[in-house]
């Protein structure tokens, strides 16, 4: 996995680059789905599409399993560069959602401590705000998609740009949880159906 380290850090712990995400500890089903999507071009990022183009499923599964099992320490929380109002909006959306706009709380699927859920819902910790903003934006504009029903596309479609900034900023301030392991499969009652997370 040395080839991955130059962008994703040793053990997939992430680097100080804004756009290369931490991989360590995300559920292997999630990582595998992303590797397959990059290989087959359903998730577009040319450097990743190129690297994975001629790799068989079994190898991609092994890569996913490796990074899912890693537990390097999380980076220190970010010092937010947004206002207290924006941070408060972020906290509210992340922990309570906005029922009036059909926005569920992030925690309802990604876990109360945001470590994700087996087999395919990623943890949200250790990711820089620019990365989270870029992904939510990509879902809003349809350039990132997942298996139907694509719940994240639905959720992101209900968010404004300010919401995205707020959610990304607040998530990046969270400290390491006591237990970084993703929640067990089926342990969270999901508010909407997701094609990637069979229940």
């Amino acid at each position: 996995m040395l080839a991955c380290a130059s962008c994703h850090g040793m053990q997939g712990k992430g680097t100080n680059n804004d756009y290369f995400p931490r991989l360590a500890g995300k559920p292997s089903g999630y990582l595998y789905n992303q590797l397959i999507a990059f290989r087959d071009g359903r998730r577009r990022y040319p450097p990743m599409n190129y690297l994975l183009e001629f790799q068989p499923d079994a190898y991609l599964q092994a890569m996913a399993n490796y990074f899912a099992a890693q537990r390097p320490p999380l980076p220190p929380p970010e010092t937010p560069i947004v206002s207290q109002d924006i941070l408060a909006l972020g906290q509210s959306l992340v922990t309570h959602g906005d029922p009036a706009r059909d926005v569920p709380a992030c925690s309802s699927c990604h876990g109360a401590s945001f470590t994700g859920m087996e087999p395919a819902i990623p943890g949200l910790l250790g990711l820089r705000p620019s990365y989270i903003s870029a992904q939510l934006g990509a879902w809003r504009y349809g350039t990132r998609t997942a298996a139907a029903p694509d719940c994240m596309q639905i959720v992101a479609g209900h968010l404004t740009e300010t919401d995205v900034t707020a959610v990304a900023a607040w998530l990046s301030t969270l400290p390491s949880p006591a237990n970084p392991t993703p929640a067990p499969r089926g342990s969270l009652p999901m508010p909407l159906a997701c094609g990637s997370e069979p229940n």
Binding site: L2, A3, A5, S6, C7, P47, L51, P56, Y59, A62
Partner: peptide
């Protein structure tokens, strides 16, 4: 089945 890869250096 599990080839060793070379990392990209364009970003660094």
């Amino acid at each position: 089945p599990r080839p060793y890869g070379m990392p990209p250096f364009a970003q660094s």
